[in-house]
Design a protein around this nucleic acid. Sequence first.
DNA 1: ATCCGAACTTGACCTGAATCAATTAAAATG
DNA 2: CATTTTAATTGATTCAGGTCAAGTTCGGAT
Lengths: 249, 249
Amino acid sequence: MSIQSPIPVRDVSFRGLRQSCSNCSLRELCLPIGLNQDELRQLDTIIAQGRPVKRGEALYRAGEPFRSLYAVRLGFFKASVISEDGREQVTGFHMTGELLGMDAISTDFHTCDAIALEDSEVCELPFADIETLARDVPALQHHLYKVMSREIVRDHGVMLLLGNMKAEERLAAFLLNLSQRFAVRGYSSSSFHLRMTREEIGSYLGLKLETVSRTLSKFQDQGYIKVQNRLIELVDVDSLKRLLNSCQG
Amino acid sequence: MSIQSPIPVRDVSFRGLRQSCSNCSLRELCLPIGLNQDELRQLDTIIAQGRPVKRGEALYRAGEPFRSLYAVRLGFFKASVISEDGREQVTGFHMTGELLGMDAISTDFHTCDAIALEDSEVCELPFADIETLARDVPALQHHLYKVMSREIVRDHGVMLLLGNMKAEERLAAFLLNLSQRFAVRGYSSSSFHLRMTREEIGSYLGLKLETVSRTLSKFQDQGYIKVQNRLIELVDVDSLKRLLNSCQG
DNA sequence: ATCCGAACTTGACCTGAATCAATTAAAATG
DNA sequence: CATTTTAATTGATTCAGGTCAAGTTCGGAT
């Protein structure tokens, strides 16, 4: 658990294959380097064309049978578990190049909802086909294990956050994590638009929406950030990092 | 997320191969049915003989290079991340038949410590070998994906617990989860020995040890359980379940 | 543009769990 | 067996964040 990245960045390795890929961001971000031409072609035959998902729509819902993983090609998703009494636990936010649906392999049913927070597009990856191909392509097999492992590590980071951190630390960790993930994708790391509500942030961080709002205001008063509705500008990143250092070295 | 199992039980499927396995509990609990004689033999050549780990010893520590997964053959482990200022976040407790170390695949380094909470024994599973074998044995390949997926689902359950539940609900969920996992292994579900300290329980549940202690006492006063140091007897399971129902249906 | 509902902010107050502190009980150790 | 150390309980107090409530702003629809 590094200082800069309490919530580990995920699925951002193995970029640089843009040139060989027209129909899907999958290879840019999610698939291992080291596939040859033929293997790439095989992969192409498996991957369904991009599927649009409108803002507010579900890519899948808990309880639905599992067929495919999805790679976010464009846009922004939240994944969440809803308890029967209506409370929501957001388990993650997912942006371009990240993989959704790995929790479903376990039972062959999806265990959470994936909702688009803006108009998005995904690549569907039929898991059975991917698995079959992985048998012949060790690099692919290994990379799938890696991506799943990374998800586990990320989840452990969230547990640390939920179990040990105070509200300010959680928010700082959250903002820095988003910042870093935008940066990796070539967007500004110091200025970005939150796609989710305060309530969704709160759900993810184990806080109430009022606390999220108050803490953002506090950060603004202290000159750490500027908040304009959902537009966030990180003014003093070092101070945000210092907030974290005190708690996780 | 079912009522009975807010923290999903893990790695307990695929039992019943006991007869064909002498050196390792791995196959009983972790490996898929449907391997033929030859495949089983191949697996045997990969799996190192049981390795004992004394109470208090580390099976591995964060930062160590990753070579193998470990199946708990006997005993009890905690897995935890330690922050630099010394605070510990327990990410899980692991008992017979469960797999440890999957978080390390991601970076080829272990990201957490695995400490034996009682004298234990593990089977070492060199990951490179397992992966190679998995290529020829689709059932094994699939099962590994499944086990990792199950870990992700479990982690989401813990997030729900840490993000949404009150102290009493967390403790109830914890006790019911342990109870269920002991039951699956043929031990009493109503009476069991806690292998971990109040502090370790607290770390896992995002509570302080005093709160754990107080809440256990409260449960005892209400007649839900009997506590004798680390020996727990579940007297009124339904009431414990009711505590959870109110929060997650 | 104007309206309306959803999202956000801010304040006042309350409460559940943390903290601090003092015993007590139970394991380890010689 | 006695001694030391570690773990657990319980009480008193504090405080971070939740809850309740009132107002404001924003964004989408007409």
